[in-house]
Design a protein around this nucleic acid. Structure first.
Lengths: 186, 186
DNA sequence: TCATTCGGTCTACATGTGTTGACTGAAAAG
DNA sequence: CTTTTCAGTCAACACATGTAGACCGAATGA
């Protein structure tokens, strides 16, 4: 303990390396999905080694679970008008910049069962909140269409890079916002 | 040639086997995507042999290209109201039953570059037609949102099986139809 | 100063997969 | 009847990948 302070301590070095690996994993999972992303590629991009990746994260599955954890959305509640307002705000944010972890989950959800469950859970949670506050016997369908529209826009912009969706979030919401209002208010 | 007629002729047998393989491939590609679908699994489901699959289709890539070919949509043209009407008709059909080949392409597009190009091409084609007929300087954005909404609904229903989207196509279109009209007419 | 921990590197193994080629038997052709 | 073609089967190969374990050297702690 009575030593000259090392330039970087050991725990800090460990933390940095883990972060580099996790960042590289998020990027690659988001770009290529789960199956096409190899432990070796992650290690290379992180400037590290496949063996370390395994030692630190246990397995490719566990690494993915950590890298593709979707941050929970805030609660949605209030009158239909307030609901619409909150939906617009949430979607605007998702269009501006969706976190890399969420993009990784979205990319992988179509081929990776656990990623599918992750996204389903997140979407279902929001959907139930919305449906509970809406009136009308088609509330469930409308909340479903809200989810589908949200999913479609986020995917089309960040993953598919569809023509016309590379506009600014404001321009997009000028078009999509009224749709959400219509769906929320009936 | 002067023989008793065989129960099934050779060319016919060949055609049948090819069809069984193609059907099995479409199903599996649609259920699990490209990477997780193995030639062996396709052969097994088709009641055939991996070697035959290769001989008949050349490679896994070529088989996928044949299995995941998206049928082209009909032309879309006319006034904004007519455009809306045609969009509603097209989407209703996609919600009722999307062909297995299209589902395979949609499932694989997020991880398989050629599948992505396939879907992009189909969507871009329709999108250009729509954008050309719409008025307003946000025509491109609106056509993009139309595409995103369509994609979101089809994916959410057939691939993600989102809550609330298992309703009948009519119920869904009762909610989504007005959105398309709004997008088309501005 | 000495022993221990631990981040990092390298090698190797087991497994699954696309793909190839040899082989068989029956249908087709003469 | 003889030869040729070809659908179908089987075994094997080359390769990539997840994963485990041995090993090294520096930071750590007494």
């Amino acid at each position: 303990m009575r030593r000259l302070r090392a330039v970087t301590t050991r725990v800090e070095q460990r933390r940095r390396t883990e972060t580099r690996i996790l960042t590289a994993a998020r990027q690659l999972f988001g770009e290529q999905g789960f199956d096409r992303t190899t432990i070796r590629a992650i290690a290379t991009r992180a400037g590290s080694d496949p063996g370390l990746v395994m030692r630190y994260f246990g397995s490719k599955e566990k690494l993915f679970a950590q890298a593709a954890a979707i941050p929970a959305d805030g609660p949605i509640e209030g009158s239909p008008e307030q609901i619409a307002e909150q939906l617009v705000a949430a979607l605007t944010e998702k269009l501006a910049d969706e976190p890399a972890a969420a993009l990784a989950a979205l990319r992988a959800m179509f081929t990776h069962p656990e990623a599918a469950e992750e996204v389903r859970a997140a979407m279902t949670a929001q959907q139930r909140q919305v449906a509970a506050q809406l009136s009308g016997d088609d509330a469930l369908v409308r909340s479903g269409v809200i989810g589908a529209l949200t999913l479609g826009l986020v995917i089309s912009r960040h993953l598919v890079r569809l023509d016309g969706l590379d506009a600014s979030p404001e321009e997009l919401m000028a078009v999509a916002g009224p749709l959400l209002e219509k769906l929320a208010t009936g």
